[in-house]
């Protein structure tokens, strides 16, 4: 085989591999859009479910998912970013910080159903939050923390040390340097990590199964200690637990969840690139 042919065959194989990555994503999105788009209308998005969830809308589930994302952010962002700042800027390299890092990496590998059971044990039963938005949000936050901490720490470490030295040489305390020079430059990376973590939380079923999700609750949650419907769990319910469910509603629900997650993703990308244009190294 001559080397030009070799080159061409190699190129073709690499292109195929790249296509093979993209194709399933396009097929999944395509199938859901084609079968679900017919279900989408104003009533579907803004009404409560009726007739054993076979008619009406999914409004409570949409609101529930948004509320859970908000609750998860409130708990996970301060703890996650704070932990990352500590690990990157303050912690010395000791066995303790190495153990913390190891724990974070391992936490990321725990199956989500285990987080669900942990949340049930700790928040719902032991702390007596009950099956509630608080319990669900905290469970999702714990699941999200490893992603937020590790991406945020990486983003902070990517800011060259010299910026910290310059800030110190101008009479800045360590915190002033972090607050005014390091954090702003690490922000795009931190935001990316936060949104990636929240996206995973938004789509999870298992962690909310025992901690917050309601099978059928055709009203909006009244307080943080109320149960709520949520899109992933609702999708699971209408796909497996309700006989004779019209497929269009199933796909329509999947489409709404997908659209929510993808639009968050797009927002994350936009924030990141607008920050990156202002960055200077």
């Amino acid at each position: 085989m001559n080397r030009f042919l070799e080159q061409r065959v190699g190129f073709a194989m690499l292109s195929l591999a790249a296509l093979a990555v993209v194709a399933p994503i396009l097929l999944v999105i395509g199938a859901i859009v084609v079968r679900g788009i017919g279900a989408i209308n104003w009533e579907f998005l803004t009404a409560v479910p009726r007739s054993g969830m076979k008619a009406g809308g999914i409004f409570p589930a949409i609101v529930g998912t948004l509320v859970l994302i908000l609750g998860t952010s409130l708990a996970a962002i301060p703890i996650g970013v704070g932990g990352a700042i500590y690990l990157s800027e303050y912690a010395r390299d000791t066995w303790l910080t190495r153990a913390i890092r190891l724990a974070i990496v391992n936490l990321a590998g725990i199956p989500s159903v285990v987080y669900g059971l942990f949340g049930l044990g700790l928040f719902v039963l032991f702390l007596q939050f009950g099956t509630s938005i608080v319990a669900g949000s905290l469970t999702l936050a714990i699941m999200t923390l490893p992603v937020i901490i590790s991406t945020a720490e990486e983003a902070l470490r990517a800011v060259p040390t010299e910026f910290r030295t310059v800030s110190a040489s101008l009479g800045g305390t360590r915190w002033q340097g972090i607050r005014r020079v390091v954090l702003p430059q690490a922000l795009p990376g931190i935001i990316t990590g936060v949104i990636l973590g929240l996206l995973r939380a938004a789509g999870e079923t298992a962690p909310i199964l025992f901690t917050v999700a309601a099978f059928f609750l055709p009203r909006l949650p009244q307080s943080a200690f109320d149960q709520t419907m949520a899109l992933p769990y609702h999708l699971y319910v209408i796909s497996t637990q309700v006989p004779g469910m019209p497929p269009q509603i199933q796909y329509g629900t999947a489409l709404v969840l997908l659209a929510l997650v993808l639009s968050l993703n797009v927002i994350a990308t936009m924030i990141r690139s607008s920050f990156r244009r202002r960055r200077q190294w």
Binding site: V166, S167, S169, L170, V181, Q280
Partner: peptide, 17 residues
Amino acid sequence: ELRRRVGMVFALPLPLP
């Protein structure tokens, strides 16, 4: 306070953002 009284200029100019 000491670093305010004793300024430092480095080899490579590094403007802050």
